[in-house]
Design a protein around this nucleic acid. Structure first.
Length: 353
DNA sequence: AAGTGTCGCAACCGCACCACC
DNA sequence: TGGTGGTGCGGTTGCGACACT
């Protein structure tokens, strides 16, 4: 009889990541860096495929990820870049520090696309739709919701059709963008995509001029300036906006034990110092030489320091409720503007500073 | 309160590309 | 030069949260 255990492929987990899995992956990557993704799950003790680990890291665990609502500036940049690049989400993401291609793609599909259609702009070409096209597009986007509603004869125009048909400011921007030279377009399209892992260390020190400067320059002619550097310098929490205030914040109100138990707190501090201090370049990605990483490794030397403790800690850490918060001001005005552990230490709670 | 519909997001899948042998 | 493995990208799917009835 054949021994199945030898031949049966190890069963790989799928679906949502548990906090424990996140912790394992996070600890592994921060300690050893990314070498070969296919070997990461084995070495990190995960029953996932390497691809899944890579995705989880890039889209969720990687430090300096910016989460929450897109700002108006970001929205404008996406619109402008999409007109030039089309659905090249990775290249668009490369121009928006802290944003992932997946996030931008979702934002486009769930919001921007619909917004453009409502404004009478073809989301594919960024050119004004003819009235018929508008009808078709809006019909299509609303078909799902209208699916089971019997329509009266001669009543095919959806509610949105009653909105005024106009060109938005964005479309004007797009018009200017159309003036990009063919050469710059080609250069742009052929430009190497940013290494997403670059952001692991250096995002906070990115000089906007180091980006696809030509592209950004062209786009920003039509935009309100989006000053990455100022945003970074002016925002001590830049790079981990999903847990703002976590750095300058709460340990004043927490006991030493609470604080030392809070791996998220340590992490945030680490990232912040990393963001502020790191000045090396991306080629050092796999060398554990920068101060922050050394610091991280020291921490990791004491595994309990990086224990997630509560089951939901990491989720709380990354998934703060950001509804309605569109910018820093909104955030600071928001009653839920700081983060700490509740008295039981089991849940992260928000309270006003 | 329960059922149903809608939406957004995280994750998966398939394909293309590249490097290496 | 073809095969193979690793990686990255874009499209799609599935699930959970929320809204509505």
């Amino acid at each position: 009889m054949r021994r199945h255990s030898v031949f049966v492929k190890e069963k790989l987990r799928k679906g949502l990541w548990s906090p424990e899995e996140d912790e394992k992956l996070y600890n592994y990557i921060t300690k050893f860096g990314v070498g070969c993704w296919s070997s990461v799950p084995k070495l990190a003790g995960l029953q996932r495929c390497g691809k899944s680990c890579r995705l989880r890291w890039i889209n969720y665990l990687r430090p300096n990820l910016k989460r929450g609502m897109f700002s108006q500036e970001e929205e404008d940049i996406i619109l402008n870049l999409h007109e030039v690049l089309g659905n090249r989400w990775a290249q668009i993401a490369a121009q928006l520090p802290g944003r992932t291609d997946n996030e931008i793609k979702n934002f486009w599909n769930s919001y921007l696309k619909k917004k453009l259609i409502k404004q009478g702009i073809d989301p594919n070409t960024h050119k004004p739709l003819s009235e018929n096209q508008v009808r078709n597009e809006t019909d299509c986007t609303e078909k799902a919701s209208m699916l089971l509603i019997p329509q009266l004869p001669n009543m095919s125009i959806s509610a949105n059709m009653e909105q005024p048909f106009h060109l938005s400011e964005t479309s004007v921007d797009c018009e200017a963008n159309r003036q990009l030279t063919e050469a710059s377009r080609n250069q742009l399209v052929s430009k190497q995509v940013f290494d997403p892992l670059f952001l692991f260390e250096f995002q906070a020190n990115v000089d906007p001029s180091e980006y696809n400067s030509e592209l950004l320059g062209q786009c920003q002619q039509n935009l309100r300036p989006y000053d990455h550097q100022n945003q970074i310098e002016g925002n001590p929490n830049f790079g981990f906006c999903s847990m703002p205030s976590l750095t300058n914040f709460e340990h004043g109100h927490m006991t030493e034990t609470e604080f030392s138990d809070s791996s998220s707190s340590k992490m945030s501090i680490l990232y912040t110092s990393e963001a502020k201090e790191s000045s090396s370049n991306s080629s050092n990605m796999n060398n554990h030489h920068n101060a922050a990483e050394i610091q991280m490794n020291e921490m990791l030397g004491n595994p309990q320091d990086l224990s997630w403790g509560s089951e939901n800690k990491i989720d709380s850490l990354f998934q703060y409720p950001y509804g309605g918060i569109k910018n820093e001001e909104d955030f600071s005005n928001n009653p839920l503007s700081s983060l700490s552990e509740d008295t039981c230490g089991e849940n992260l709670v928000f309270h006003h500073i």
